[in-house]
Design a protein around this nucleic acid. Structure first.
Lengths: 174, 174
DNA sequence: CCGCAATTGTTGCTTAGCCAACACATTCCG
DNA sequence: CGGAATGTGTTGGCTAAGCAACAATTGCGG
Protein backbone atom coordinates (compact mmCIF):
# COMPACT_ATOMS: atom_id res chain seq x y z
CA UNK A 1 0.00 0.00 0.00
CA UNK A 2 1.31 3.43 -0.92
CA UNK A 3 -0.33 4.92 2.21
CA UNK A 4 -2.50 7.93 1.25
CA UNK A 5 -0.37 10.89 2.25
CA UNK A 6 -1.96 14.02 0.84
CA UNK A 7 -4.06 15.67 3.58
CA UNK A 8 -6.58 16.88 1.02
CA UNK A 9 -7.28 13.34 -0.09
CA UNK A 10 -7.79 12.14 3.47
CA UNK A 11 -10.03 15.06 4.34
CA UNK A 12 -12.17 14.83 1.22
CA UNK A 13 -12.58 11.10 1.59
CA UNK A 14 -13.72 11.56 5.18
CA UNK A 15 -16.14 14.30 4.18
CA UNK A 16 -17.75 11.96 1.67
CA UNK A 17 -17.96 9.11 4.16
CA UNK A 18 -19.41 11.35 6.88
CA UNK A 19 -22.02 12.73 4.50
CA UNK A 20 -22.98 9.25 3.43
CA UNK A 21 -23.26 8.07 7.02
CA UNK A 22 -25.62 10.85 8.01
CA UNK A 23 -27.75 10.25 4.92
CA UNK A 24 -27.95 6.50 5.39
CA UNK A 25 -29.31 7.10 8.87
CA UNK A 26 -32.40 8.81 7.52
CA UNK A 27 -33.19 7.38 4.10
CA UNK A 28 -32.84 4.22 2.09
CA UNK A 29 -29.65 3.53 0.17
CA UNK A 30 -31.36 3.47 -3.20
CA UNK A 31 -32.96 6.84 -2.52
CA UNK A 32 -29.60 8.48 -1.95
CA UNK A 33 -28.13 10.24 -4.97
CA UNK A 34 -24.50 11.10 -5.53
CA UNK A 35 -25.51 14.72 -5.90
CA UNK A 36 -26.94 14.66 -2.39
CA UNK A 37 -23.81 13.14 -0.96
CA UNK A 38 -21.49 15.64 -2.60
CA UNK A 39 -23.67 18.59 -1.65
CA UNK A 40 -23.70 17.56 1.98
CA UNK A 41 -19.97 16.89 1.90
CA UNK A 42 -19.43 20.32 0.30
CA UNK A 43 -17.33 18.84 -2.47
CA UNK A 44 -17.74 18.80 -6.20
CA UNK A 45 -19.49 15.90 -7.85
CA UNK A 46 -16.51 15.29 -10.10
CA UNK A 47 -14.33 14.96 -7.03
CA UNK A 48 -16.51 12.13 -5.82
CA UNK A 49 -15.62 10.12 -8.89
CA UNK A 50 -11.94 10.74 -8.26
CA UNK A 51 -12.34 8.84 -4.99
CA UNK A 52 -14.98 6.20 -5.67
CA UNK A 53 -16.21 4.34 -8.70
CA UNK A 54 -19.85 4.80 -7.77
CA UNK A 55 -22.06 4.77 -4.71
CA UNK A 56 -21.94 1.00 -4.47
CA UNK A 57 -18.19 1.05 -4.00
CA UNK A 58 -18.69 3.75 -1.39
CA UNK A 59 -21.23 1.60 0.44
CA UNK A 60 -18.87 -1.34 0.30
CA UNK A 61 -16.02 0.62 1.81
CA UNK A 62 -18.10 2.34 4.48
CA UNK A 63 -19.61 -0.94 5.60
CA UNK A 64 -16.22 -2.60 5.68
CA UNK A 65 -14.76 0.16 7.81
CA UNK A 66 -17.70 0.20 10.19
CA UNK A 67 -17.70 -3.52 10.64
CA UNK A 68 -13.95 -3.50 11.15
CA UNK A 69 -14.33 -0.82 13.83
CA UNK A 70 -17.22 -2.63 15.49
CA UNK A 71 -15.26 -5.86 15.50
CA UNK A 72 -12.29 -4.15 17.10
CA UNK A 73 -14.58 -2.86 19.83
CA UNK A 74 -16.47 -6.04 20.54
CA UNK A 75 -13.84 -8.73 20.13
CA UNK A 76 -11.11 -9.22 22.65
CA UNK A 77 -7.73 -10.73 21.98
CA UNK A 78 -8.43 -14.37 22.62
CA UNK A 79 -5.68 -16.65 23.88
CA UNK A 80 -7.20 -20.09 23.48
CA UNK A 81 -10.17 -21.58 21.70
CA UNK A 82 -12.44 -22.80 24.48
CA UNK A 83 -16.09 -22.61 25.46
CA UNK A 84 -15.73 -19.15 27.01
CA UNK A 85 -14.08 -17.73 23.89
CA UNK A 86 -16.70 -19.15 21.55
CA UNK A 87 -19.53 -17.90 23.73
CA UNK A 88 -18.00 -14.46 23.82
CA UNK A 89 -17.53 -14.36 20.06
CA UNK A 90 -21.12 -15.42 19.53
CA UNK A 91 -22.39 -12.70 21.80
CA UNK A 92 -20.13 -10.23 20.02
CA UNK A 93 -21.58 -11.13 16.63
CA UNK A 94 -25.04 -10.41 17.97
CA UNK A 95 -23.80 -7.14 19.43
CA UNK A 96 -22.30 -6.04 16.10
CA UNK A 97 -25.57 -6.66 14.32
CA UNK A 98 -27.57 -4.87 16.99
CA UNK A 99 -25.35 -1.83 16.59
CA UNK A 100 -25.51 -1.84 12.81
CA UNK A 101 -29.24 -2.31 12.97
CA UNK A 102 -29.54 0.71 15.23
CA UNK A 103 -27.34 2.76 13.02
CA UNK A 104 -28.81 1.99 9.61
CA UNK A 105 -32.46 1.43 10.48
CA UNK A 106 -34.10 1.73 7.10
CA UNK A 107 -31.42 0.47 4.78
CA UNK A 108 -30.51 -2.48 6.97
CA UNK A 109 -32.22 -5.15 4.93
CA UNK A 110 -30.41 -4.04 1.81
CA UNK A 111 -27.04 -4.72 3.34
CA UNK A 112 -27.39 -7.90 5.36
CA UNK A 113 -25.65 -10.00 2.72
CA UNK A 114 -22.74 -7.61 2.47
CA UNK A 115 -22.49 -7.34 6.23
CA UNK A 116 -22.47 -11.07 6.50
CA UNK A 117 -19.68 -11.36 3.97
CA UNK A 118 -17.49 -8.72 5.60
CA UNK A 119 -18.16 -10.01 9.08
CA UNK A 120 -17.16 -13.53 8.19
CA UNK A 121 -13.91 -12.24 6.71
CA UNK A 122 -13.10 -10.43 9.94
CA UNK A 123 -14.20 -13.36 12.03
CA UNK A 124 -11.84 -15.61 10.14
CA UNK A 125 -8.93 -13.26 10.86
CA UNK A 126 -9.75 -13.38 14.55
CA UNK A 127 -9.95 -17.15 14.62
CA UNK A 128 -6.83 -17.74 12.56
CA UNK A 129 -4.30 -17.53 15.40
CA UNK A 130 -6.43 -19.86 17.54
CA UNK A 131 -6.58 -22.83 15.18
CA UNK A 132 -4.21 -25.06 13.22
CA UNK A 133 -4.71 -23.76 9.68
CA UNK A 134 -6.69 -21.45 7.42
CA UNK A 135 -9.26 -24.06 6.50
CA UNK A 136 -10.12 -24.59 10.15
CA UNK A 137 -10.61 -20.83 10.55
CA UNK A 138 -12.87 -20.70 7.51
CA UNK A 139 -15.02 -23.62 8.65
CA UNK A 140 -15.29 -22.19 12.13
CA UNK A 141 -16.25 -18.69 11.03
CA UNK A 142 -18.89 -19.91 8.61
CA UNK A 143 -20.29 -22.29 11.17
CA UNK A 144 -20.45 -19.59 13.83
CA UNK A 145 -22.10 -17.19 11.47
CA UNK A 146 -24.57 -19.84 10.38
CA UNK A 147 -25.42 -20.37 14.01
CA UNK A 148 -26.01 -16.68 14.45
CA UNK A 149 -28.21 -16.61 11.36
CA UNK A 150 -30.39 -19.37 12.75
CA UNK A 151 -30.53 -17.80 16.20
CA UNK A 152 -31.52 -14.51 14.58
CA UNK A 153 -34.55 -16.13 12.93
CA UNK A 154 -35.91 -17.27 16.27
CA UNK A 155 -34.64 -14.45 18.46
CA UNK A 156 -36.26 -15.80 21.60
CA UNK A 157 -33.73 -18.55 22.38
CA UNK A 158 -31.62 -17.93 25.45
CA UNK A 159 -28.19 -16.81 24.19
CA UNK A 160 -25.69 -18.30 26.62
CA UNK A 161 -27.19 -21.77 26.58
CA UNK A 162 -27.37 -21.66 22.77
CA UNK A 163 -23.75 -20.54 22.60
CA UNK A 164 -22.64 -23.39 24.83
CA UNK A 165 -24.25 -25.93 22.52
CA UNK A 166 -22.40 -24.36 19.58
CA UNK A 167 -19.15 -24.50 21.48
CA UNK A 168 -19.51 -28.17 22.27
CA UNK A 169 -19.96 -29.05 18.60
CA UNK A 170 -17.26 -26.76 17.29
CA UNK A 171 -14.62 -27.85 19.79
CA UNK A 172 -14.94 -31.38 18.47
CA UNK A 173 -13.62 -30.16 15.12
CA UNK A 174 -10.21 -29.05 16.29
CA UNK B 1 -18.41 42.31 -1.27
CA UNK B 2 -17.36 39.77 -3.87
CA UNK B 3 -18.94 36.93 -1.83
CA UNK B 4 -16.43 34.06 -1.44
CA UNK B 5 -17.70 31.41 -3.80
CA UNK B 6 -15.11 28.66 -3.98
CA UNK B 7 -16.14 25.83 -1.60
CA UNK B 8 -12.52 25.08 -0.78
CA UNK B 9 -11.97 28.59 0.50
CA UNK B 10 -15.05 28.47 2.70
CA UNK B 11 -14.17 25.05 4.06
CA UNK B 12 -10.54 25.82 4.79
CA UNK B 13 -11.42 29.09 6.46
CA UNK B 14 -13.91 27.30 8.68
CA UNK B 15 -11.39 24.60 9.53
CA UNK B 16 -8.95 27.24 10.71
CA UNK B 17 -11.57 29.06 12.75
CA UNK B 18 -12.83 25.85 14.33
CA UNK B 19 -9.30 24.79 15.24
CA UNK B 20 -8.63 28.17 16.77
CA UNK B 21 -11.84 28.05 18.76
CA UNK B 22 -11.09 24.71 20.30
CA UNK B 23 -7.57 25.81 21.17
CA UNK B 24 -8.64 29.12 22.70
CA UNK B 25 -10.92 27.18 25.02
CA UNK B 26 -8.00 25.42 26.67
CA UNK B 27 -4.95 27.66 26.49
CA UNK B 28 -4.02 31.31 26.40
CA UNK B 29 -3.94 33.17 23.11
CA UNK B 30 -0.23 33.95 23.34
CA UNK B 31 0.56 30.28 23.93
CA UNK B 32 -1.12 29.26 20.71
CA UNK B 33 1.17 28.85 17.71
CA UNK B 34 0.20 28.97 14.07
CA UNK B 35 1.69 25.54 13.66
CA UNK B 36 -0.72 24.19 16.27
CA UNK B 37 -3.67 25.78 14.55
CA UNK B 38 -2.80 24.43 11.14
CA UNK B 39 -2.06 20.97 12.45
CA UNK B 40 -5.39 20.77 14.20
CA UNK B 41 -7.15 22.16 11.15
CA UNK B 42 -5.36 19.57 8.98
CA UNK B 43 -4.20 22.23 6.57
CA UNK B 44 -0.77 23.35 5.50
CA UNK B 45 0.89 26.23 7.31
CA UNK B 46 1.36 28.09 4.04
CA UNK B 47 -2.36 27.87 3.44
CA UNK B 48 -2.98 29.69 6.69
CA UNK B 49 -1.12 32.69 5.36
CA UNK B 50 -3.22 32.64 2.22
CA UNK B 51 -6.25 33.29 4.42
CA UNK B 52 -4.98 35.44 7.28
CA UNK B 53 -2.16 37.89 7.76
CA UNK B 54 -1.22 36.43 11.15
CA UNK B 55 -2.86 35.05 14.25
CA UNK B 56 -3.86 38.51 15.44
CA UNK B 57 -5.97 39.05 12.34
CA UNK B 58 -7.49 35.64 12.92
CA UNK B 59 -8.34 36.56 16.51
CA UNK B 60 -9.86 39.80 15.32
CA UNK B 61 -12.09 38.07 12.80
CA UNK B 62 -13.12 35.25 15.11
CA UNK B 63 -14.05 37.64 17.88
CA UNK B 64 -15.98 39.84 15.48
CA UNK B 65 -17.94 36.90 14.17
CA UNK B 66 -18.68 35.55 17.63
CA UNK B 67 -19.78 38.87 18.96
CA UNK B 68 -21.92 39.43 15.89
CA UNK B 69 -23.56 36.05 16.42
CA UNK B 70 -24.06 36.66 20.13
CA UNK B 71 -25.57 40.04 19.43
CA UNK B 72 -27.98 38.54 16.94
CA UNK B 73 -29.06 36.04 19.58
CA UNK B 74 -29.44 38.42 22.48
CA UNK B 75 -30.79 41.57 20.87
CA UNK B 76 -34.32 41.77 19.60
CA UNK B 77 -35.53 44.08 16.88
CA UNK B 78 -36.47 47.12 18.87
CA UNK B 79 -39.26 49.38 17.66
CA UNK B 80 -38.89 52.40 19.90
CA UNK B 81 -36.29 53.75 22.27
CA UNK B 82 -37.90 53.58 25.69
CA UNK B 83 -37.09 52.37 29.16
CA UNK B 84 -37.92 48.76 28.38
CA UNK B 85 -35.67 48.73 25.32
CA UNK B 86 -32.73 50.25 27.14
CA UNK B 87 -33.10 47.86 30.04
CA UNK B 88 -33.21 44.93 27.68
CA UNK B 89 -30.13 46.10 25.79
CA UNK B 90 -28.24 46.54 29.04
CA UNK B 91 -29.10 43.04 30.18
CA UNK B 92 -28.11 41.74 26.76
CA UNK B 93 -24.67 43.36 27.02
CA UNK B 94 -24.15 41.59 30.32
CA UNK B 95 -25.32 38.33 28.78
CA UNK B 96 -22.91 38.65 25.85
CA UNK B 97 -19.99 39.13 28.20
CA UNK B 98 -21.04 36.24 30.40
CA UNK B 99 -21.11 33.97 27.39
CA UNK B 100 -17.75 35.12 26.06
CA UNK B 101 -16.30 34.78 29.52
CA UNK B 102 -17.53 31.21 29.71
CA UNK B 103 -16.20 30.41 26.31
CA UNK B 104 -12.71 31.88 26.52
CA UNK B 105 -11.91 31.37 30.21
CA UNK B 106 -8.15 31.84 30.26
CA UNK B 107 -7.56 34.29 27.48
CA UNK B 108 -10.45 36.53 28.40
CA UNK B 109 -8.44 39.36 29.88
CA UNK B 110 -6.38 39.65 26.72
CA UNK B 111 -9.42 40.42 24.65
CA UNK B 112 -11.59 42.68 26.72
CA UNK B 113 -10.51 45.77 24.86
CA UNK B 114 -11.16 44.23 21.49
CA UNK B 115 -14.49 42.83 22.62
CA UNK B 116 -15.45 46.25 23.89
CA UNK B 117 -14.56 47.84 20.58
CA UNK B 118 -16.47 45.33 18.47
CA UNK B 119 -19.44 45.29 20.79
CA UNK B 120 -19.80 49.06 20.66
CA UNK B 121 -19.72 48.95 16.88
CA UNK B 122 -22.57 46.43 16.85
CA UNK B 123 -24.45 48.30 19.52
CA UNK B 124 -24.30 51.44 17.44
CA UNK B 125 -25.78 49.62 14.46
CA UNK B 126 -28.65 48.42 16.61
CA UNK B 127 -29.34 51.85 17.99
CA UNK B 128 -29.07 53.66 14.67
CA UNK B 129 -32.66 53.11 13.50
CA UNK B 130 -34.00 54.19 16.88
CA UNK B 131 -32.46 57.65 17.05
CA UNK B 132 -32.24 60.79 14.94
CA UNK B 133 -28.69 60.58 13.60
CA UNK B 134 -25.39 58.73 13.73
CA UNK B 135 -23.92 60.93 16.42
CA UNK B 136 -26.82 60.12 18.73
CA UNK B 137 -26.22 56.42 18.16
CA UNK B 138 -22.53 56.78 18.93
CA UNK B 139 -23.12 58.74 22.12
CA UNK B 140 -25.75 56.28 23.25
CA UNK B 141 -23.69 53.17 22.56
CA UNK B 142 -20.60 54.53 24.33
CA UNK B 143 -22.68 55.68 27.26
CA UNK B 144 -24.39 52.32 27.58
CA UNK B 145 -21.14 50.49 27.35
CA UNK B 146 -19.58 52.79 29.91
CA UNK B 147 -22.47 52.03 32.21
CA UNK B 148 -21.86 48.33 31.73
CA UNK B 149 -18.16 48.80 32.45
CA UNK B 150 -18.92 50.50 35.74
CA UNK B 151 -21.56 47.96 36.69
CA UNK B 152 -19.05 45.19 35.91
CA UNK B 153 -16.57 46.65 38.42
CA UNK B 154 -19.08 46.41 41.23
CA UNK B 155 -21.01 43.36 40.09
CA UNK B 156 -23.28 43.34 43.13
CA UNK B 157 -25.63 46.15 42.07
CA UNK B 158 -29.13 45.03 41.21
CA UNK B 159 -29.38 45.04 37.41
CA UNK B 160 -32.91 46.15 36.61
CA UNK B 161 -32.85 49.11 38.97
CA UNK B 162 -29.46 50.14 37.65
CA UNK B 163 -30.70 49.86 34.08
CA UNK B 164 -33.71 52.04 34.85
CA UNK B 165 -31.45 54.81 36.14
CA UNK B 166 -29.43 54.61 32.93
CA UNK B 167 -32.60 54.79 30.87
CA UNK B 168 -33.84 57.91 32.62
CA UNK B 169 -30.59 59.75 31.89
CA UNK B 170 -30.23 58.55 28.33
CA UNK B 171 -33.77 59.30 27.33
CA UNK B 172 -33.18 62.94 28.19
CA UNK B 173 -30.62 63.11 25.40
CA UNK B 174 -33.00 62.39 22.54
C1' DC C 1 -45.88 5.09 -25.34
C1' DC C 2 -43.39 9.44 -25.56
C1' DG C 3 -41.08 13.37 -23.76
C1' DC C 4 -39.21 16.08 -20.25
C1' DA C 5 -36.56 16.32 -16.18
C1' DA C 6 -33.15 14.66 -13.28
C1' DT C 7 -29.07 11.71 -12.34
C1' DT C 8 -24.88 9.76 -13.96
C1' DG C 9 -20.26 9.48 -15.55
C1' DT C 10 -16.61 11.97 -18.17
C1' DT C 11 -13.63 15.73 -19.86
C1' DG C 12 -10.33 20.02 -20.28
C1' DC C 13 -9.20 23.94 -18.03
C1' DT C 14 -8.77 26.89 -13.74
C1' DT C 15 -7.73 27.60 -8.95
C1' DA C 16 -6.76 26.53 -4.08
C1' DG C 17 -4.00 23.96 -1.20
C1' DC C 18 0.33 20.98 -0.32
C1' DC C 19 5.23 20.69 0.14
C1' DA C 20 10.01 21.67 0.78
C1' DA C 21 13.18 24.91 1.42
C1' DC C 22 14.55 29.31 2.68
C1' DA C 23 16.03 33.51 5.76
C1' DC C 24 14.82 35.40 9.79
C1' DA C 25 13.09 35.97 14.64
C1' DT C 26 12.21 33.78 19.31
C1' DT C 27 13.00 31.14 23.22
C1' DC C 28 15.42 28.39 26.43
C1' DC C 29 18.93 26.02 28.55
C1' DG C 30 23.94 24.66 29.59
C1' DC D 1 26.91 34.42 26.62
C1' DG D 2 26.04 31.12 22.60
C1' DG D 3 24.04 27.73 19.95
C1' DA D 4 20.31 24.52 19.44
C1' DA D 5 15.65 24.17 18.85
C1' DT D 6 11.39 25.91 17.58
C1' DG D 7 8.19 29.32 15.40
C1' DT D 8 7.41 32.81 11.58
C1' DG D 9 6.63 34.44 7.07
C1' DT D 10 7.62 33.71 2.08
C1' DT D 11 8.55 31.42 -2.35
C1' DG D 12 7.98 28.27 -6.73
C1' DG D 13 6.70 24.00 -8.45
C1' DC D 14 3.29 20.36 -8.16
C1' DT D 15 -1.32 18.04 -7.19
C1' DA D 16 -6.10 17.69 -5.79
C1' DA D 17 -10.44 19.86 -6.06
C1' DG D 18 -13.74 23.05 -8.48
C1' DC D 19 -16.42 24.15 -12.51
C1' DA D 20 -18.96 23.98 -16.72
C1' DA D 21 -20.37 21.47 -20.38
C1' DC D 22 -21.23 17.20 -22.50
C1' DA D 23 -23.57 12.63 -23.91
C1' DA D 24 -25.82 8.84 -21.95
C1' DT D 25 -29.07 6.79 -18.85
C1' DT D 26 -32.79 6.55 -15.85
C1' DG D 27 -37.40 7.65 -14.29
C1' DC D 28 -41.80 9.42 -14.11
C1' DG D 29 -46.26 11.64 -15.32
C1' DG D 30 -49.39 12.92 -19.32
Amino acid sequence: MPQEMDPRVIRTRQLIIDAFNTLIATKDFNQITIKEITERATINRATFYAHFLDKYELLDIVLSEQIQALMAENFSDYKTLDEATITHIFEAIIQVHETLHMHCRRGYNTFTQMIEHKAKEQLKLILLPLVANELQATLMSWALYGAYDEWDKKRDVEVVGYAKKIAVSLLKMV
